[in-house]
Nucleic acid binder design. Structure first.
Lengths: 247, 247
DNA sequence: TGCGCGGAAAATGTCAGACATTTAAATGTA
DNA sequence: TACATTTAAATGTCTGACATTTTCCGCGCA
């Protein structure tokens, strides 16, 4: 006698290492372990969970991959609960966003729409809080974008830096984190599609309009300029797609 | 004779398993391996990279933790390049956001500001595209929030569902993904602070105003209502903080 | 001929033990 | 006291073995 396959009431089919990773992750997320705290040694964890050391190690590597812990060799080393820094979070956000876009056949329209909607959310704050530093970065990148001999790669990189400065000008690190995926993953994707067709002069003009408005603290004008840039990009993308389809 | 510590030209200090994970990750991100493709078996990878199987396994677990690969046991099983689904990406986004907020002492103001700025980015699209389904969800949650006996936990959960529906109404899955962290990580954080002080009637009134505007396709009114909700929440948070400080 | 059943094979999952390496504390010595 | 040395506790890595899962293929049976 056996119940065979239909066992819907058995969701616990995960690997031991996955279970252990989940258990430790929960302890961290729920605050039972605090930043900087040292986990038991691998040998102790193996004993606690009643598994072998390699299994524990696999679990720890899973957590390390999510920047939840960091390990240190040597005496008094071990695994420590990691403080997730903004930079690490940025990196994960960008990787995840890039993969999500490339693996789900996200259309140009969808990505473009999301990207500009998010950036638009920053402009009122940026207009209110921009520092001379942010403005200087934006102006410098605009100037760079006007140089005649600039390669396409450099122009794209400068484009990203410009928008990054705009986002950072909002002075909200959480917002900057959230926008990292939009700017650093979607913008390059869009550049890759439109760089053949676009007019650098037009882009520079839009960027100048945005920078002027931000400098003047005029969020309405900045939003309008951003929307125009979005519309221009969208149109370019449609043209390119149409040309590709016609071929 | 020995060069001792000062060896700044040696950036390769990572574990073997980390190096291998990076190598495979790059292959995936750069498109040299496509979704669904099978990786070599652990034994083959061990030979290719000239390491032992446990080391390879640790590398694979790192990748699995990021949902980059999925493994399958049995003959013709192995590790396969995983298609990162929206759901998996949501989950990672929420986990990362939650940790980032809790581990970096993000202030109530900062989180609140970012959260409402992001949500504001969705309202024009939501006003233009909302379906009867989304409206029904929003109305249902508003109704639930008006029930007298509702527990605080249920009210908070309903709050999240309401805002989630608003975000989804924009009809842009990439935007929904980006907002997942804001709605599901920041909203609960804010609820935890303000739930003692807030007036449910006021919240319901704001929600109703938002839903009405979205239903009418009036994005300006919706944004205004959202901004009022943001201001109310911010004020509540400041009051609570002040009360705590005074004690 | 067609169907089901069972073994073989290939892969991941797990374990045990050993050795290598790194690091900081403890100890010893000038 | 200051410096060099030893030592111990960890992680990092390797080897080999066994357990488990799953698919494929061929065999036998109707």
């Amino acid at each position: 006698m056996e119940t065979a396959k239909p066992q819907p009431a058995k969701p616990q089919k995960a690997d031991l290492s996955a279970q252990i990773a989940t258990a430790i992750r929960d302890a961290i997320v729920e605050g039972r372990m605090i930043t900087g705290e040292r986990l038991p040694s691998e040998a102790e964890l193996a004993e606690q969970f009643n598994v072998s050391r390699p299994t524990v190690r696999e679990a720890l590597k899973r957590l390390a991959a999510q920047s939840l812990i960091r390990t240190q060799r040597g005496a008094f080393g071990g695994a420590f609960v990691n403080r997730l820094s903004y930079e690490e979070a940025y990196g994960q956000q960008i990787t995840t966003s890039t993969l999500l876009l490339s693996m789900n056949g996200v259309s140009f329209e969808t990505a473009c729409e999301a990207r500009y909607a998010l950036e638009r959310a920053c402009t009122p704050l940026a207009a209110a809080r921009r520092t001379p530093d942010h403005l200087a970065t934006m102006r410098a990148e605009i100037h760079r974008q006007g140089q005649p001999g600039l390669s396409d790669e450099s122009f794209c990189a400068s484009d990203v830096t410009f928008h990054r400065a705009l986002v950072d000008a909002a002075g909200n690190p959480v917002l900057s984190y959230q926008l990292a995926g939009a700017v650093e993953a979607m913008q390059p994707l869009m550049n890759m599609i439109t760089f053949t067709a676009r007019s650098r002069e037009a882009i520079v003009a839009f960027h100048t309009g945005i920078a002027d408005a931000i400098e003047a603290g005029d969020s309405t004008t900045a939003e309008t300029a951003l929307e125009e840039l979005a519309a221009y990009t969208l149109e370019l993308g449609r043209d390119v797609m149409q040309a590709r389809a016609a071929r």
